[in-house]
Each structure stands twice: as C-alpha cells, then as structure tokens.
Design a protein around this nucleic acid. Structure first.
Length: 504
RNA sequence: GCCCCCAUCGUCUAGUGGACUAGGACGCGGCCCUUUCAAGGCCAAAACACGGGUUCGAAUCCCGUUGGGGGCACCA
C-alpha cells in the first residue's frame, strides 16, 4: 500500500531535532511504500507565527535531502507573510495529486464549511463563553480537585446566533461510552468519552483549531498514515470521533514517542544542539543525521544487526512496525561515531567539496585551483581522522599556511639530547634533499634507513621531523604529509629547526 | 487531581512462550597493529525495574506496585 504521509509543523520557531525525527519516520514510510510525503504548514495560531520560520523549515528538509512531493510554494509563502525566499527543491513543486494549498491559513473556507456541516448535523454547536467565564469554571473544577472538561450543559448562554461572535465546539457523542482505535505503535487504545471535552474546533477569529484542521486536511489531502508525536495521543480520540461524524474512513495512526536528552528529560537546548542547522554548522553530514535519527526508536529487526544505512537502504528496510513504543535518549557520542563512518564512506572529491565552507570558516579558504588540488591530495591522509567536518582545519592548516618555528623542546626527541637531535635533523635534511623524487614511496624507506643508521627509534626520528615541519605533535601520517608539503617547504622548515637547535 | 502512554546492558536496540549461558552497535577498559593521532582487528565488563499470577516452560501473556514521560487552551 502506497502511503501518503505528511509533516505538519507550525511556523513558530526553529525546527527541533525531535520533530525532525518524527518527520524522518513519516518520510521513510512514504519512500518505503513508493508513496508521497509532503509538508503542510499549520499556522492557525496567528499570534505565535514567527517570520522566516516557514522558510527555514523548508530549508531544513532541503539540507537533509528529504525530498518532498508537495508543500508550500513560493506564492503561498508570499501570501502568508513576507518570506523572501524558499528552497530550490520546491521551486518546481512536483506535487503528485495532493490538493493544496499547503498552508492552513489559505484553507479557511474549507474548515468553515465542515464546521458548519457538523453544526447542521448535530455534531457541533455554537458557544460564546468568555475567556473569563471559562477560566472561572476551570478554577472551580480545580478547587474541587477535578479535571476540567467543557460540556454543552455548562454553557452560560444557551442560544447563540450564527451572526454574533462565537466559537464552534464539537459534541462528544455518545456522552458516555468508549472511543477505541488502533495505533500502529501504541497498539489498541481506549478513552472514556466522559473524559473528553467539547473541544473548540473553530475559533472566534474564524481559524480552526488543530483538531478540526488536522482531520479535514488529512482527509482532503489523502493522508493514509497520521504519523506524529505521541503528545498528540490524548487528543486522538477526538479526531477519531470527527472522522466518524464526517463519515470519513480512519487513517492509520502512528504516535511516535518523544526524544529525550541524556539526562532522561525531554530534549531541549540545554542538552546541546537541537536545531538541525546547528548540527549542520557543527560539521555533521545529513546522511549521518538521518541515519542516526532513523535509528532512534527504530531498528530493522528480524535479527538484522545493521547500523549504518544509506538512504536507499532505509527506504528498503524501514517499517513503522519496527518503531519502538518507548522514548529514546539522544546520545551525541553515537552521532559522532556515525558521522565519522559516513565521512569515511565519502568519495574524495565529494568530501573536499563539503569541507570547503568549514575550511573557509576556519580561515583556510581553498579558493584557488592549486589549493583545491592540495586539498584533494590531503584528504586520503585525513579522511579517517574526521569525526566531524570541523575537525579538518586543525589537521591541515600547517599545509596551507606557514608555521612558527617550533620551540626548542619540541625539536628534541624523546630520550634525546639537543646535539643528537641536531645531528639527526641535519642528516634528515641531507637525505630528503638527495631524494630523486619527493614522494611518499621514496621518503619512507629513506627515513627508515636513516633511523636505523643513527640507531634511533622510529618515534624519535619521526617525532622531531614531524614537529619541525608541522609545529604540531599530532598530524596526519608523516611521509604522506611531507610529500604533500613538497620538498621546498619541507627543507625550509627543517632548516629553521636546525637553526633553532643550533642556538645555545 | 483526572486521563493516557512507557519500562531489556550507561545509551540505541534485537528478542513476539522453548533455539537466551539474553544477540548487535555506541561508549568504557584491555590487547594487537603502529612514526603521532586516528582507522582497523581481537578480548572483556555491562541489562530483562519489582511482586504476584497463567503455563510443563516467561524478557516475552495477565494483574498489581514502583519509576519515568505526556496530556487536561478560542496553542500546536
């Protein structure tokens, strides 16, 4: 069965990584079944709207590589507020028969129409209690230590005309009884109708509340699987009732558990990065973020112990059935490992391109062809040393820029005296200068032979050469590094080290 | 307060009544490889929250307890 799923954020701020995880599940379910996945903006709360947030949400999906089959287009965003831009991915809007608009504020007449239908058919009624009256009722229930739920019987004014300001509330029917439904993740769930309240479905300002909007949109847009956070589970029975009133078939429900921080509390900013853009800026690959998020609460099951997945493998293996029902803790260390794995899988030129903005950011703009070639030659030396893209700059800066001549203590090898280091350094210089070709395959045997000749351990000779040419004690493998550095620069830096060692 | 959901190594999880001496991955520790750092290989420690049932047999089914989480708006 082809699934049509959606992600329906409200444009109220930064897209949270926990929300994105839910979106990943919905997206994978759609791709797994060769169905469709789209985005719908739930902007029915005019007061909470944050400018630019819609655009950033779309850019998030763009960066993650989560392809869409529908979503808000430029015109809609323009109409809504003044978002000046939107991702290229949506420009051609390859909508596959999903009826828009994809912004709820553009669909007001549709909600109005169904709300009135519900009133006419006895499933809803008009009410106009003031906020103060409602608040009073709520306080009173609280003082009696009872849960408050608004019911028709509590109305202050029984007759409310259609032409005076009012809201429309759904009627919970039957008044007592049980509403049951099946959830793909939680299983069979049941709610007593007596605990449900006559929820407002159309606000006085003419906007629907979430409950009406989500049901109307999901049905009219052909959503087959309602995949959302499990904080929605308690209101799901109201939605089930609305589907029944409207005579619409129920979609499949899948309420996915929350994502927690390492301390077991709901994931928030104080745990570290939570916005997708933060992960991007910290050097994580979209492949790794998606892989990691998919594995947070999902596993292939059936004895399959695979951890690292490509998008295609996820499309093939993902299944809502194997999404767990308990909340998962977001462990940053595992993301780091997974990111390293995905970095190692990248082709050299691909990795080079992805590294460019991070190198530039670190003051190493690789903006000439010569520099880019240098980067390409360096990548094999550093690729398996990069948990994150931000880790490249400190590994290669000495290849791009000149260095300070290292201090004396760095030029004296372990268990060596100054004069011995000086002698070794001079010999190394001589050997390197005499090499017919300055390549790794020539440098390595030459320096090893020298080490044996001088009766120095590898880490004695190699350490001082490393320090002399890089100014660092930790670098990519020495011989390859020297080759990339080139004979001229290498000898120059060794000469400076020799001069340093000659001082008293 | 009321309602709902959840419960396997520190973490992500496999497990759907017998193949469980509970498997894998991250992390942690050790060893190997090794010019540093990584990567890689090998080894180890590490869990079925508790109590009752059901059953010949329970991590798996039921009930309760405890502990976590969520919801109770003219917000989503």
């Amino acid at each position: 069965m082809k699934a049509r799923t959606r992600f329906a954020p409200s444009p109220t701020g930064e897209l949270h990584i926990g929300g994105v995880r839910t979106a990943v599940f919905a997206w994978l379910q759609a791709r797994h079944t060769a169905g469709q996945f789209y985005i719908r903006l739930e902007d029915t709360d005019q007061e909470r709207y944050t400018a630019g947030s819609a655009r950033r949400i779309l850019q998030t999906f763009d960066w993650l590589g989560m392809t869409l089959d529908g979503g808000p287009d430029h015109a809609e965003l323009q109409h809504m507020k003044s978002d000046e831009d939107y991702p290229e991915a949506l420009a051609d809007g390859s909508f596959q028969g999903i009826p828009g608009p994809f912004v709820q504020s553009q669909r007001l007449p549709i909600y109005k129409q169904w709300a009135e239908w519900l009133v006419e058919n006895g499933y809803a009624y008009r009410a106009n209690e003031t906020p103060e009256e409602l608040d009073h009722m709520r306080k009173e229930a609280e003082s009696r230590k009872e849960g408050f739920r608004f019911r028709e019987e509590m109305r202050v004014r029984q007759e409310v005309r259609a032409d005076e300001p009012h809201v429309i509330r759904m009627r919970i029917l039957p008044r007592d009884g049980t509403t049951r439904f099946h959830d793909m993740i939680k299983g069979d769930v049941a709610f007593e109708n007596a605990n449900l309240d006559d929820q407002v479905i159309l606000k006085q300002d003419g906007f629907p509340t979430y409950h009406l909007a989500v049901v109307v949109d999901d049905y009219t847009q052909g959503v087959t699987h309602v995949i959302r956070g499990d904080d929605w589970l308690p209101s799901a029975p109201k939605h089930v009732l609305l589907y029944q009133y409207l005579g619409w078939p129920l979609p499949v429900f899948a309420h996915v558990p929350n994502v927690l921080g390492p301390d077991g509390r709901k994931l928030s900013k104080r745990h570290g990065a939570t916005s997708v853009f933060e992960f991007r800026d910290q050097g994580y690959l979209p492949e790794a973020v998606i892989n990691f998020l998919a594995m947070l609460g999902w596993a292939p099951g059936q004895g399959d112990e695979q951890n690292i997945f490509t998008f295609d493998e996820l499309f093939q293996k993902f299944s809502l059935e194997h999404v767990g029902s308990s909340p998962a803790v977001f462990e940053y260390t595992k993301l780091d490992w997974m990111n390293g794995v995905h970095i190692r899988k990248l082709a050299v030129d691909d990795l080079a391109k992805r590294l460019l903005p991070f190198l530039a950011q670190a003051g190493l703009p690789m903006d000439t062809d010569e520099k880019f070639q240098l980067l390409l030659r360096t990548i094999p030396l550093i690729q398996e040393r990069l948990p994150k893209l931000t880790d490249a700059a400190p590994l290669i800066d000495f290849l791009v820029n000149d260095i300070e001549t290292p201090p004396m203590e760095m030029l004296i090898g372990p268990k060596m005296e100054q004069h011995l280091s000086l002698h070794a350094m001079r010999e190394a210089r001589r050997v390197l200068a005499e090499l017919p070709v300055f390549e790794e395959s020539a440098i390595e045997p030459a320096l090893r032979a020298l080490g044996a000749e001088l009766q120095l351990k590898p880490n004695q000779l190699f350490a001082i050469i490393r320090n002399a040419v890089s100014g660092k004690t930790v670098t990519p493998p020495l011989f390859g590094t020297l080759a990339v550095l080139g004979r001229e620069v290498t000898l120059n830096r060794i000469d400076r080290a020799i001069a340093q060692l000659q001082t008293v």
